[in-house]
């Protein structure tokens, strides 16, 4: 196999190179439409919510727990915060309640996964359906109008250096999650549990407590994403489900980046924008066909997992060969 020099980091930063390639290709192809600061600003802002959702998925995934309910949670938090504000609650309080409720959903998921020992995939899939049903009960399936309060929109839409402030929120949350996962004992415990729950338990890690905590974190982050979406775009009854798959794709693609073989924050964020740039460019080229986003995310998810699995297998093979060669050497010595 041909080896690229390590300093160029093709191995760890293939996503960044791909992002660069997209930018160059589409800038040449559609210079007047693609290569504008407006495109930059809109792509970054559009995908900020997806980015936050990816971070929500990332935390439990590090310890091997799937949270498929974040799409429904984000949706519910949006509707709830808007309804509360429209009913005269103060904006901070409404936001706090919606975020708190996201955390409660995560805690319930955690109870079912940890205490009742139900597989997390099943638990959160079911929970997503339950949350959607509750949303119908609350809204009578009628989409509430956005609150007509300027401050409400300013929370996310105010611009800083041309970027909508939501981008900064996303980066702030990414920073906090990165700090927690990469620089605190809690993060280490989560990675250890993801690597081998039994070995973690026998190393004194409280596996149940941290798995539970990871689901509370994902619910809370999804709650934050929901509130921000309400401010950025206004309430919608069904947007959340559509964000789930792209977010998963980004997290898995991210696990092949920066620190390959490991789910990580900056890889996920990078991947969100690699995918978004590709989709935006293609939309401009093809005059906005509707299926691009779904096609791109689905292909990216499968490709990312295939790459990760392939990398693991080739690593095993290399190790097997190097061990057998050293064994032959030592046999030759003897």
């Amino acid at each position: 196999m041909k080896r690229f020099p390590r300093s160029l980091g093709f191995d760890r930063f293939s996503g960044a190179y791909m992002l660069g390639a997209f930018v160059i290709v589409f800038s040449i192809w559609k210079p007047s439409l693609f290569a504008t600061t407006a495109t930059l600003h809109s792509v970054t802002a559009d995908k900020a919510i997806s980015g936050i959702l990816a971070l929500a998925i990332l935390v439990p995934l590090v310890c091997g727990v799937y949270d498929l309910s974040v799409g429904a949670t984000v949706n519910f938090a949006t509707i709830l915060s808007v309804l509360l504000v429209k009913n005269g609650w103060s904006i901070p309080l409404a936001m706090l309640i919606a975020v708190f409720l996201g955390g409660v959903i995560g805690a319930v998921n955690g109870f079912i996964v940890v205490r009742l020992k139900v597989n997390s995939f099943i638990t959160t899939l079911g929970m997503a359906s339950v949350i959607a049903a509750v949303q119908v009960i609350v809204t009578h399936n009628q989409q509430p109008l956005p609150p007509n309060i300027p401050i409400w929109n300013d929370i996310t839409q105010k611009t800083v250096l041309g970027f909508q402030v939501i981008v900064l929120y996303m980066l702030a949350i990414a920073f906090v999650v990165w700090w927690a996962l990469a620089h605190t004992p809690v993060g280490r415990y989560l990675y250890a549990i993801g690597s081998s729950p039994e070995a973690a338990r026998l190393s004194g890690v409280r596996v149940d407590a941290y798995s539970w905590l990871s689901l509370i974190a994902s619910g809370t982050i999804a709650g934050i994403a929901g509130v921000l979406y309400g401010s950025l775009t206004g309430p919608s009854l069904s947007f959340g489900g559509g964000l789930l798959l792209p977010a998963f794709a980004a997290v898995f693609l991210g696990s092949t980046q920066i620190t390959p073989g490991r789910f990580n924050v900056w890889g996920s964020v990078l991947s969100i924008y690699v995918l978004a740039t590709g989709v935006r460019g293609l939309q401009l080229v093809t005059n906005n066909v509707q299926w691009l986003d779904g096609m791109f995310s689905g292909v990216a998810l499968i490709t990312a997992v295939a790459v990760a699995v392939g990398r693991q297998r080739s690593a095993d093979e290399r190790k097997r060969r190097s061990l057998s060669s050293t064994r032959q050497l030592s046999a030759a010595d003897a």
């Binding site: 280490r188 415990y189 990675y191 250890a192 081998s196 973690a200 004194g204």
Partner: peptide, 22 residues
């Protein structure tokens, strides 16, 4: 299966039971 974390680094394997000190 039980003694070590194969896909973590040697450093992380050694420190996992000692993180409070670090």
């Amino acid at each position: 299966l039980q003694g070590a974390f194969m896909d973590l680094t040697a450093r992380e394997n050694i420190s996992i039971s000692n993180l409070q000190k670090l």
